[in-house]
Computed example of a mutant assay.
Amino acid sequence: MDVIELESFVNNPPHGFSVESRAGCRVVKWDQESSCVFIDEIQSGKGKVVFCNSPGREVTVRTLGEYTDLRRQLTSKTIYILVSACHETKVDEKKKGDVQAFGYYVVAINGNHPMIRWEMERGLDMTISSVAGESYTVDVDVSDALQGWVGESYQILVDAGKIKPIWRDTHFTIKYRSDALFDFPYWFGFSKRQFKVTYHGR
C-alpha cells in the first residue's frame, strides 16, 4: 500500500504512469495491464487533472462476464483511488459533519497481496450471494486500510500548522445492473452493500 499527495503523483508519476500537459490540464496515462484506476477528473490547486480511461469512482457491470473480468482485475492488479484530506472546523461542526478539503491523495493498494485478495473476494462473494439475480451497488471502502497505514498520530502541514486529517471519499463503487423487470429490492434501496479493506502492515 502507498499514499501519495496528488501533486507529487503528477509531478513524479510512479512506474506504469505518465503525464502529458494539454490545453490547461494534465492528462495521466497508465498501464491498464497492471493497474485499476478509479479516479474522477479533479480540479487541483494547480489545474485540472484527468486520468485517461478511468471509469471514475463508479464502475458499472451488466453481465456475469463483465463482473468476472472486474473481479479478476481487482484481485490481480494495483488499485488506485483518490481520497480527500479534510479538516473539520467549529463552523463545520455546527453543520453536523460538513468538512473542508485541503488536500488530495492517491491511495494505491496491491490487490494481488494474499490478504487483500482474500478480503476482496470474500466481500464480493458476500455481496453476490445476498443479491443473486438482482441489481446491486457495493462500496469498496479503504478507510480502515488508509488509517492503519498513516497511523493515528499522522498530521499534515497546512499553512505553517499541523492538522490531523479526516479522510473522505475513501471508496469506489461497483454497480451491477440486472435485466430483471421487477427488481424491487434495488428500486427500494435494499441492494446496497459495503465492505472494508483493512491494513496488514508495511
Rank of each mutant, 00 (worst) to 15 (best):
R71M: 13
R71Y: 10
R71G: 01
R71I: 05
R72W: 00
R72M: 05
R72S: 08
R72A: 11
R72I: 06
Q73F: 01
Q73E: 10
Q73D: 10
T75A: 05
T75D: 01
T75Q: 02
S76T: 08
S76D: 04
S76N: 00
S76G: 08
S76H: 07
S76Y: 00
S76M: 06
K77D: 02
T78I: 10
I79Y: 07
I79P: 02
Y80F: 12
I81D: 07
L82V: 10
L82P: 01
L82W: 03
V83G: 04
V83F: 01
V83Y: 04
A85T: 05
A85I: 02
A85D: 06
C86F: 00
C86W: 02
C86G: 04
C86S: 12
C86R: 05
H87G: 15
H87F: 14
E88T: 10
E88W: 01
T89W: 13
T89A: 14
T89L: 14
K90I: 13
K90P: 07
V91A: 13
D92Y: 01
D92I: 01
D92P: 06
E93S: 09
E93I: 07
K94G: 09
K94Q: 14
K96R: 14
K96D: 15
K96N: 14
G97Y: 08
G97D: 07
G97H: 06
D98W: 09
D98G: 00
D98E: 14
V99P: 06
V99S: 06
V99I: 09
V99C: 13
A101F: 02
A101T: 12
A101E: 08
F102I: 12
F102G: 05
G103S: 09
G103P: 08
Y104A: 02
Y104N: 11
Y104G: 03
Y105Q: 11
Y105E: 01
Y105N: 11
Y105F: 14
V106N: 06
A108Y: 04
A108L: 05
A108R: 13
I109L: 11
I109P: 04
N110K: 11
N110A: 09
P114D: 13
P114N: 08
